[in-house]
Design a protein around this nucleic acid. Structure first.
Lengths: 174, 174
DNA sequence: TGAGACGGTTCCACATAAGAACCAATATGT
DNA sequence: ACATATTGGTTCTTATGTGGAACCGTCTCA
């Protein structure tokens, strides 16, 4: 299978990665969250080639993560800003940062700290349950087929198999 | 700059991506979280080429995200399992899944739902502040230089500039 | 009139990926 | 005893992606 076809999978992770899963893309988004908006700024901050940057920005605009907003007529210039869809990537970015802080440390402490303005303290983001507010741990979460995979569920039951304990069942999912 | 050098940046996101930022890698990890352990299982589920899979698994073992555990002598066979470091990627994965659910939906509903066994309800993971428990929103979080970037802070102050409102300041950070 | 800022595009050499075939150690069936 | 299957790879060829540098077009400012 080609990488270009992963967005066809019935899998939210695969679909997400079809947009933000290429080299440089998440770093461009990180920079956007830190306030970078212009082509040359991105290029200087990231050290990516202009060619690649141009291509990646184009794709991000196409997929609705960034918008091109003019900030000057004559000469016509635009900058790139996060859309709501782009802002939605914040948890992904923060989770990556947190994991990097925890596991990729070089013994010099973390590069950045994050002050939560609401409570005034340095925060370390935690993933929690929307329903009970407890931290979400992988052992305490059971994935089950959602609406988009009901046909698959029917198929499996028709074959006389059980929906329980078939981990590879989820091969097209999650 | 080459992609291979991003792990040298003083940036936790970049460092994290140097491990999990390549094509296929997060999908391999997704499968590992869903219970996949053996080479051929991964290959069948993902549709990745054996070559690429072999290389990616090797890198993940090298970087400590997976371990190779023998499950049979004669013939010697091993399987791949998530380490604690690997399990630490759960929030990244769930955040990606959630974003995909929300923004890459095709109108057929979500592929998978997640039941939080502790409270028994279908959960949608939320990123919250470790200190006050409130949901973390990008506008309410102020990144500031951490220990690893104190030299940079000194440099900037020496140049007579302010640490405030210099977004590109963070170019080597986050 | 000439240089510089900005936001790109074009070109080439090299690196990485996809797909298929092959390989080696054992186990299993006949 | 021999053929076939299983598992976990490696090797090869061809296609696609990437990095680096040069170039381009529109403006502004001196």
């Amino acid at each position: 299978m080609r990488w270009d076809d992963i967005d066809k999978q019935v899998c939210s992770v695969a679909r997400a990665l079809s947009v933000v899963g290429e080299r440089w893309t998440m770093l461009i988004i990180r920079d956007a969250f830190l306030g970078t908006r212009r082509f040359d700024q991105f290029q200087a901050n990231l050290g990516i080639t202009r060619h690649r940057l141009s291509e990646r920005l184009g794709k991000l605009v196409e997929s609705g993560v960034l918008v091109k907003v003019p900030y000057s007529e004559r000469p016509l210039r635009h900058e790139y800003r996060l859309t709501r869809k782009g802002l939605g990537l914040y948890p992904v970015l923060m989770s990556l940062a947190r994991w990097g802080d925890e596991w990729m440390d070089r013994g010099e402490g973390v590069p950045l700290e994050y002050v939560h303005l609401k409570c005034g303290r340095t925060t370390r983001p935690v993933l929690t349950c929307s329903e009970c507010g407890e931290p979400l741990r992988p052992q305490e979460v059971r994935p089950q087929l959602g609406p988009a995979l009901q046909p698959l569920a029917a198929e499996i039951e028709a074959a006389g198999e059980s929906l329980e304990d078939i981990p590879p069942l989820f091969k097209r999912s999650m």
